[in-house]
Every structure is written in C-alpha cells, then in structure tokens.
Nucleic acid binder design. Structure first.
Lengths: 116, 116
DNA sequence: ACTTTATTTCAATTATTCTTGTAATATTGA
DNA sequence: TCAATATTACAAGAATAATTGAAATAAAGT
C-alpha cells in the first residue's frame, strides 16, 4: 500500500513553496471545516488568481481536496495522504539494524514491527 | 522549538525531486552507516557531479549530514530534523476541535496533549 | 614528487516554475 | 435577464532549478 514515487515527489513539490506551505498549514489548522478559496486568498494577502494557481497544483498532487459548494470551492487538507507520505519516507528505515532506530528517534522504528 | 518556515521550505524543496528522494530513502535505509558520495552515485546510475550537486543541496537544507573521511565524504540522513519537519507540518492541527483528529487519523492528534 | 581516485566547482544550456494581468466561466440574487 | 461575485484559465515575462561537460582541489598510494 505504499505510495508511488511519482506521487511522493508531487506531494513534496506541492509543499516546497512558502505560499503553498502556508496554505497547507492553514488548512491543517482548519481541520474538517476547511476553507473556501476566497477566504484563503484573503488570509494569504495574495491575488486570488495566484492562490488559485497554487491550490490547483496542491489539489492535483492530492495534498488537499476540493469540494464545490455553489459558487464556492472548499479546500481541505488531505491528512490521510500525508500519513502515507510519511510512511513512504521512512519505509525500510535502518533496514537490518533495527537497534539503530531508537537512538535515531524515528517513529517508524519505535513501532513494534520495526525491522521486520 | 518549532522549525522556521524557511527551513521547512528548504527541506521540502530538497525532497521534491525524484533523484533526491531516491538518495534520501537510500540513506534512510542505510541508517547510521550512511554512504559515501561515490557509492551513492553508483547506486543512482548518474554522473558523480550531478549527484554531488544534489547532495550539496540536500546537506545545505539539513536533510542529510556529511562527514569527511579521508578523501571520502560520508552522507547520512538527518532523521532528527525530519521529525521536526513532521511536527512543523501538523502543528496546531484541527485547532480547537481535537475531537476531529482521531477520525482524521493524524498522529499529532492521537497524542494525549492534542488540542492543548 | 607523481599518479590515481574521490569529490566538488564552475559555466553554459535547457527546462521548469512563479507571478502578473486579463479574460472566461459559472453561480447567485435582484 | 442583468449585474455582481467567486473562481479558474490563459498567455507572457521573470525567476529558479536541472543537467552536462570540463576543470579544479585534495587525499592516498607508489
């Protein structure tokens, strides 16, 4: 159930900009409520079309989801995919030497199945 | 003790390329042993100077560390910083509505201090 | 000292991404 | 239907990043 590499790269690209990182964290803070595009743009203090450009990239990558509400577009952070991304990163960590993991304090290695 | 936004952006940029993502995951698998630049280049099947270019970016961002060993440069994944990056991402998640967190299955929210 | 090996640096080219402005689409309310 | 609002689409220029090749540095072995 691991992510495709291509998917992971797109997700990191989607996070690799100050604007988009701010947007994502804003949506994480909003939780399930999310925010509509105009609110996000107001919050970012950027032109609406620029924010829309970034939101498009983020939703295309899967980092956020979008739902239409009349003439509004409501965006939400896709936290489930973020979890998969983290798992992808730490997949097979310290392979063969699980005893290294605790000292490196990596969550994957603290798991009971680490090193399997 | 949260990361600076600029630091977080640089880390995501460092992960936002197929080549660098492969390198990072390779180093994660290697654990504390790490790998020297030439081994990494051989593993990536890319020109050494190209790999060096990417490694420089990654180490400048802090994603990996580098230690000189004679004429070799040994690179290791900086897992401690990765942990901080994850914390930065999920900081203040679902602020004010901690009851949303479990259903979103985000690790930060499963923590006992979620919503504080 | 000389040669080989490991790695980095620099410069040039190509490719990609960001921003801005303007126009288009589509929903709502009068 | 008409006007206003929310948002996206498109195009052009500016800014960044990636790749390649050639040269530089620096440690190790002879």
């Amino acid at each position: 159930m691991s992510l495709e590499k291509e998917t992971a790269v797109k997700l990191f690209e989607a996070l690799a900009s100050g604007v988009r990182l701010d947007i994502y964290r804003l949506l994480v803070r909003q939780g399930h409520e999310g925010m509509v595009a105009g609110q996000i743009a107001a919050n970012m203090d950027l032109p609406a079309n620029n924010v829309s450009f970034h939101l498009k990239g983020m939703s295309h990558a899967g980092l956020v989801t979008v739902a239409q509400e009349g003439r509004y577009q409501r965006y939400r952070a896709n936290l489930a995919l973020m979890q998969q991304l983290l798992a992808y990163l730490t997949d097979e960590c310290c392979a063969g030497q699980p005893q290294q993991c605790p000292e490196l304090a990596l969550p994957c290695c603290a798991a009971p199945d680490c090193g399997e």
